[in-house]
Write a protein that binds this DNA or RNA. Structure first.
Length: 262
DNA sequence: ACATTGACCTGAGAGC
DNA sequence: TGCTCTCAGGTCAATG
């Protein structure tokens, strides 16, 4: 589901398709997805503008408009974007449709309406207001920074990683993956990690997020050695062959290898 | 200060 | 076939 690598892929998709094209009009049908902005206001800002550039922080995609404000998109569990020309190709569940004056369109598609569409003055002020933590791919995320933040937490590792106010961009699937690759149990207490574990987690985090982004967050193109490919009942560990365990953390299904993750 | 639960949403797949 | 049930997991609010 759209986590950091997926959203980064969508960002690059926008970069390579529809920047600097004049926006003729938009259609919005996203009742509960608009936050602090009306459909009319959104239309007013986008109509006659062009997309100037993009940015990303965690799971949020930002698109700067030539009129100043930035369009903010959050994809929830099922959101995606599609750029195309033929009107007949408009995907089902299109909630936001941008018509460019050259006839092309950008569709914001959310099968479930779990997502967000809004405006902001900029990515930095938005991240501040939403209290987002450092982005998972921020080069400033050193092992020391990681260790310091983890040391102040009482809770478990899985929920720490998924806390967007701690590190922004990690969700259920990649959170499990980096814990697996670092050899840390999801229910390990964050403050109990030693320096070695923090180093391994930092490395696994960078590796998982970078490789997944490079492979366009396509599970088919990610290594078989990843836990990602074993998220099902009765699966075995790709490393040691032990039975993968399945538990619930904060209502979300967590997979881990009881032998590799101690 | 933490974890847990349910609501929000909708489609896919299972089971009857 | 067609119904109902469960599950998927991002985020938030309410509760323990």
């Amino acid at each position: 589901m759209p986590e950091l690598p997926d959203v980064e892929t969508l960002k690059r998709y926008v970069d390579s398709t529809c920047l600097h094209r004049s926006i003729e009009d938009i259609d919005v049908d996203a009742p509960r997805m608009l936050r602090d902005v009306s459909a009319a206001k959104l239309r007013d800002v986008l109509k006659g503008a062009a997309f100037a550039k993009t940015a990303r922080h965690g799971k949020f995609l930002f698109i700067e408009t030539s009129k100043g404000p930035w369009l903010v998109l959050h994809f929830g569990m099922t959101g995606s974007l599609r750029y195309y020309k033929e009107p007949a190709k408009t995907p089902d569940h299109t909630r936001l449709l941008v018509h460019f004056s050259d006839g092309y369109r950008l569709a914001g598609v959310w099968r479930r309406r779990l997502g967000r569409i809004c405006l902001t003055d900029g990515p930095a002020v938005f991240a501040e207001a939403q209290e987002l933590g450092i982005d998972g791919l921020d080069p400033g995320l050193h092992p020391k920074v990681l260790g310091k933040t983890l040391g102040g937490r009482r809770g478990g590792m899985k929920s720490a990683l998924m806390d967007q106010g701690f590190i922004a961009g990690i969700g259920n699937v990649y959170g499990d993956e980096m814990l697996f690759q670092a050899g840390i149990r999801p229910d390990a207490k964050a403050r109990d990690l030693d320096d070695d574990q923090i180093t391994r987690l930092h490395r696994a985090m960078g590796h998982v997020l970078r490789l997944a982004t490079e492979r366009q967050a396509d599970p088919e193109r990610l290594p078989d050695s990843w836990l990602l490919s074993r998220r099902e009942e009765g699966a075995t560990c790709p490393r040691c062959g032990a039975a993968i365990e399945r538990t619930k953390t904060a209502g979300l299904t967590t997979y881990f290898c009881p032998r590799c993750q101690s």
